[in-house]
Simulated assay, not measured.
Amino acid sequence: MTPTTSPSRPDTRPGSRVPALGALLRDGGIWADWAAAVGLVVLVVVFQIANPTFLSSGNIRSMLVASAILVVLSVGQTFVVLTGGIDLSVASAMTFGAVLFGFGISHGWGIAGCGVLAVLGGALIGVVNGLLIGHGRITDFVVTLGSLSAASGLALVIADGKPVTVVSVPLLMLSTGGVGIIGWTVLVAAVVAVLAHLVLFRTRWGTHVFAAGGSPEAATATGISVPAIKIAVYTVCGVLAGLAAILLVARVGAAEPAANTSFLLNSVAAVVLGGVSLVGGRGSVLGPVLGALLLTALSNGLTLLGVSPFYQPVAVGTVVVLAALLTRFRK
């Protein structure tokens, strides 16, 4: 009998490392998982060659501070996407929280009270989203699209369409202080990312989040309440949007009632670049963090090269589509 071989099995015998490495590099799933890391390295090399000031300590600090808000929002978005959902209201929830912060300031509240109010405002949007999606069984796209509009409208009504200037020494220190090139806002974002990783990968609740996203039917069969998980993850996303609102007010020095949709688009883009499956059940926290850093580096590098800001959304969109194409090869 003629022996048969399986061409799909890589050769793992001693001396066959080169073919095995080649097969690994040809695996599109590997590139999808590490798209953000590889893309970030490539961008750093290209922009440093094009402009030697790109990796200067001042510019690195500027990029890290600029990425802090997006990192916090992307981590919140990650919780939602891991369950197979999406939160289109995350930027509006942040704006709503910022306006509530300004409302507190204008009524003589202290910074701590205003911060709590901002977080509670974001949490309120998240709880409403979670209840309508989890128990109301309404599509996440429709619910969060509606809350996007509602939160934006409420922000305009509360602020009467006018920004509130916030002058505060603690907020000024939060936005400008730090240790070396690491600003305080960057440390806040890093703590959020670390805590999110521990919750998702070191707790039973985190396992339930992955299970609810991977197979809701199987999760229900094992006793997991998928509606409760939905409410929880949207609440987490709302709370982090409220925290991002505090960082935004500290950075801008004012509570702006106008929603910045770029934060929404970039938070979803960072999650896609980070290799989180849009159908749920697979992903990490590090990936979206790297995705947020990549998008910030891309914007910063193009600005240093004198590229018109009108072209920057085109570049971001192209990068995201390429990352989405890579996910087709993930097993």
Rank of each mutant, 00 (worst) to 15 (best):
H107R: 15
N266Y: 11
P313K: 15
V116A: 14
L174Y: 02
G301A: 08
K230V: 15
A112Y: 14
T83F: 04
G153D: 06
L64D: 03
T303A: 13
S67C: 05
G242Q: 09
G76S: 09
K162P: 00
R282N: 05
T139C: 02
I49W: 14
V46S: 08
I133C: 05
L131I: 15
A93Y: 11
G122M: 11
G39Y: 03
I105E: 09
G153E: 09
F47A: 10
V209L: 05
R61E: 14
A123H: 03
N129C: 10
L243M: 12
A219N: 10
V285T: 06
M173V: 10
A112N: 05
I133V: 13
K162I: 14
P313Q: 15
T53D: 12
T53S: 15
T5C: 09
V157G: 08
S6E: 11
A93V: 02
T139E: 13
L124K: 01
L43W: 01
G146M: 13
P163E: 01
A37M: 13
V44F: 12
R282H: 11
P3M: 14
Q77Y: 07
P170F: 04
L286Q: 04
V209T: 14
R26L: 13
K230L: 13
V276L: 10
R251N: 14
R282T: 10
R26K: 09
S299P: 00
V164G: 00
